[in-house]
């Protein structure tokens, strides 16, 4: 029983966040300079734009033991490169459908729009996502498929 297992060893999820340089990464910085706390389980990777996130990076993260992956970009219409976040949105919709099909819970992945001025939203989004992933428990599906090195 997964839920009981969580209670016993206080499960700390490993979460990768891809943040676009122009909006969400700056939003994360603003959350920091506003001292808005969120759990340390999330680690941010800076990318120039949400459209730089290859779906393969997400599969790689799950394979390496990530329990959740979140992609943050500029709000629709506000992309620094005009259209990048639209590509990200479409690609991720397809990928999430596929992950679902593979039996990886849809809730382990998320796309969120956070602007450079939304430090509070960034912190709240991260807390909420960490909470969701913590409830889901450890992700084993792809991790267990790895060939032993």
């Amino acid at each position: 029983m997964q839920i009981e297992e969580n209670k016993n060893e206080e499960f700390k999820p490993c979460i990768v966040a891809f943040c676009c340089n122009w909006c969400s990464y700056a939003g994360a910085d603003l959350a920091g300079s506003s001292r808005l706390t969120y759990p340390a389980d999330v680690k941010i990777i800076r990318v120039p734009c949400s459209c730089r996130v290859n779906p393969l990076f997400i599969l790689r993260a799950f394979q390496r033991g990530a329990d959740g992956v979140i992609i943050c970009g500029c709000h629709p219409g506000d992309c620094h490169y005009t259209t990048g976040n639209y590509y990200a949105r479409r690609r991720m919709t397809l990928l999430f459908g596929m992950l679902d099909y593979l039996g990886i819970e849809r809730e382990r992945t998320r796309v969120e729009w956070v602007s450079a001025a939304e430090g509070a939203k960034f912190a709240a989004t991260m807390s909420d996502f960490i909470d969701t992933v913590t409830k889901l428990g450890r992700n084993r599906k792809l991790r267990d498929l790895r060939c032993k090195e």
């Binding site: 990318v47 120039p48 779906p55 490169y81 990048g84």
Partner: peptide, 26 residues
């Protein structure tokens, strides 16, 4: 301008983004 949209769309992974390469991000 280095957004990287092309790198993801490329079916043969010929496109890469300097400074944020596939290998670096992975």
């Amino acid at each position: 301008q280095g957004c990287g949209a092309c790198t993801v769309t490329c079916p043969s992974s010929a496109m890469d983004l300097k400074g944020f390469t596939n290998r670096q991000i992975m």
